[in-house]
Amino acid sequence: MRTNWTLIAKVLAGEAGHEEEHILSRWSLQNKKNKQLIDMLKKNWESIEPEDGKIRVDTDQAWMNLRNRLENDGLLSDPAEPATTKTMLPQMMRAAAAVILLVGLAIISYLVLTPDSSSVRLAASTTDNQEFGIILPDGSEVDLNAHSEIEYRLEASGIRSVKLTGEAWFSVNRDPVHPFIVEAGSGVIKVTGTSFSVRTDPESDRIEVYVSSGSVQFHQARKDHKVLSLEPGTLGVLEQNHLEEEKSIDINYLSWKTRKLTFRQTRLGEVADILNRTYGKNIRFDNEILEDCLFTGTFDQQPVDSVMKVIQIAFNLDMEQEKNTFIFSGSGCN
């Protein structure tokens, strides 16, 4: 069975009948590559649910782009079918088409066009206010923060490698024989099975690696440099050719992923910096005095509007919002 993108979109959107679901299920079990594709699409379908901080896409345009691409590549199961307009195609179907695009056509091109290739390649990226989770072909999971990009390669030898720009969380499928290697700036991270985050800052040439479980080997790209072994709860930093382990770790280090925030007598200026990174917003104060106000509070899975309202009320401030920018004004720390 040729890859039937219309059927896949219907199943993802919950608009397929039992027989159609059964057909797709049988197809996904025909070989490993089919199952990889369906697993990745299902994972990323969840990321466009209307929750704060998730990917927003022009689903109408996505559907048309997908049809055009698949027709050009000869992948559409029913190319003779008239083009579907946005007034005829249900919203959820257009959203499902958008997911297929968001996974990255490089993935689809490999799985569909080059089944005999000796390696797997895929790429994914995010922009403003986007977070994106994908399942890699080896079963590992990656969550990308905003303004981030990865290029993944699974060699025929079984070695798994990723090039990262920005910030990502990795949960690596354990394989002691075939290491998982992340190249981030001038740093290299090597694991066999663990969960960890990597953050790069091209402007400062700073690379950070935080380990949640398992162990990580962190070193510079040049092999003659020392290797830093990181255990759970530790943070490794590579900056200006200097590699070291930092003992003091921000309690909100992974807030962009967990959406859990804790502030204990924290300067409001620092609170704003953390919230900007967590929610992808631009929080500013028109009075510098406000940045020194101390704030204590906790948030768990709260939308950014609720967090802004709490800060506004806590300090009796005025607040203006324009798209992704919040501006607080007031006379001081009331």
Rank of each mutant, 00 (worst) to 15 (best):
H22Q: 15
V99M: 02
E167R: 15
K35Q: 15
P90F: 01
E244H: 14
G332W: 06
G166V: 09
F263L: 06
N241W: 07
K163W: 10
G330D: 00
R174K: 15
H242V: 13
V99T: 15
N68G: 06
P176F: 06
A123Y: 09
A96N: 01
P90H: 02
D300L: 10
T84A: 10
K42N: 14
K35F: 09
K281P: 01
F196I: 04
N276S: 06
E231W: 01
D39T: 14
K190Y: 01
V307S: 04
H178G: 08
E245L: 11
E322W: 00
V227P: 03
D305L: 11
I289T: 13
F315N: 10
K260R: 15
I38A: 07
I38S: 04
F180N: 02
G166Y: 04
I108L: 12
L268T: 03
G236N: 08
V172S: 09
V198D: 01
G280H: 08
K10Q: 14
S77G: 14
S117L: 04
V103S: 15
E320D: 13
Y110V: 10
L37N: 06
L7Y: 06
L24W: 07
R284C: 02
I274C: 03
Y152P: 03
D73A: 14
S204E: 13
N72F: 10
K260W: 07
R259Q: 11
F132C: 00
S171I: 12
E270V: 12
K10D: 11
A13W: 03
G14Q: 05
E288C: 00
N316V: 09
R199I: 06
L76A: 09
S195C: 06
D286L: 10
W256R: 04
R264Y: 10
D116L: 10
S109P: 00
A156K: 15
S118V: 08
P90Q: 02
T165H: 12
L75I: 02
S255H: 04
D224V: 08
E46T: 13
L275W: 05
T258I: 03
E320S: 10
